[in-house]
Design a protein around this nucleic acid. Structure first.
Lengths: 146, 146
DNA sequence: CGGATAATCTTATGCGCATAACGAACGCTG
DNA sequence: CAGCGTTCGTTATGCGCATAAGATTATCCG
């Protein structure tokens, strides 16, 4: 493969990550959230209460990260952490009312962010973009390939 | 816009960021590098010695981040930090021989990473992907839009 | 059953990023 | 030339992520 193409691709992904996250941070700041936390709330709102291990799997991040993020969201009152009666190792994470309300607001912000992100892209690109992103994600997922 | 589409897009970008970065970390580890540092070396190898402010601009990150990253790369012997004779506030960053050699190795790794990332994508998507990434990056760049 | 293995969470610790606050040098303009 | 806003860099602090190491509980198997 052409090294210039490789560079454009990798650097492009890196830059998009930084900027998209930075923009998300700007939009989430009024809600008192840091980027990354919105994913927790959205996931819980989608699928209901989850064990931390399941949550980490869904978010694509590791157990220690889940512990810290859930602890902070618990401290700000948006989620609950209760022991799992069926498995004394596990802790169940669920949304509080405040967390549910926040999830709704996040969803609106995310429409704004998505519209902003894909502005001026041709309709054809829009259509295949989610699939492309998903394919690339699974391509570089270490757990399955390596 | 459809909230589901927005979610797929934003979440897709977030997941791709995480996994792509994690895979980069795996590939860079044998070189003793952490993800983010490779961008510094590649940029310096591309454009020659730079002032830290210029470097930060090229990388899309803020002055404190540049200070820390360059300090660490200096400590590992890959770059040099010399005072700018023409501007006593500035410090010029340049590659050492070890840094140049490393940049070559990184370029090879990045071809590997890029090939892995776009595996199974149709040729048409490959062709427009860099442009799409660039458009999205500039779309969410806070400095110009906001 | 009991003991090894695996799963779940937690506590360090470290890196890349950010913002905020500061000091030092530049450069323009009165 | 004196003053002042601007630019460059640094330190301090905080968050999201990671890995490594430990403690507790589940589970499987001999």
């Amino acid at each position: 493969m052409d090294p210039e193409y490789a560079d454009a691709l990798n650097q492009g992904i890196r830059l998009l990550s930084l900027r998209h996250r930075a923009r998300a941070a700007q939009l989430l700041a009024p809600l008192g959230l840091h980027p990354g936390q919105e994913a927790v709330l959205l996931e819980l709102d989608r699928t209901g209460p989850l064990i931390q291990a399941q949550l980490g799997e869904a978010l694509g991040c590791e157990p220690p990260s889940v512990t810290l993020m859930t602890r902070k969201l618990e401290a700000s009152g948006h989620i609950r952490r209760t022991p799992d009666p069926a498995d004394k190792r596990a802790t169940v994470v669920s949304l509080t009312d405040s967390g549910k309300a926040l999830a709704d607001q996040i969803r609106e912000l995310w429409v704004t962010l998505a519209e902003e992100t894909v502005r001026d892209l041709p309709a054809a690109a829009l259509k295949q973009l989610p699939g492309i992103l998903h394919t690339m994600s699974t391509n570089v997922d270490g757990r399955s390939s390596a």
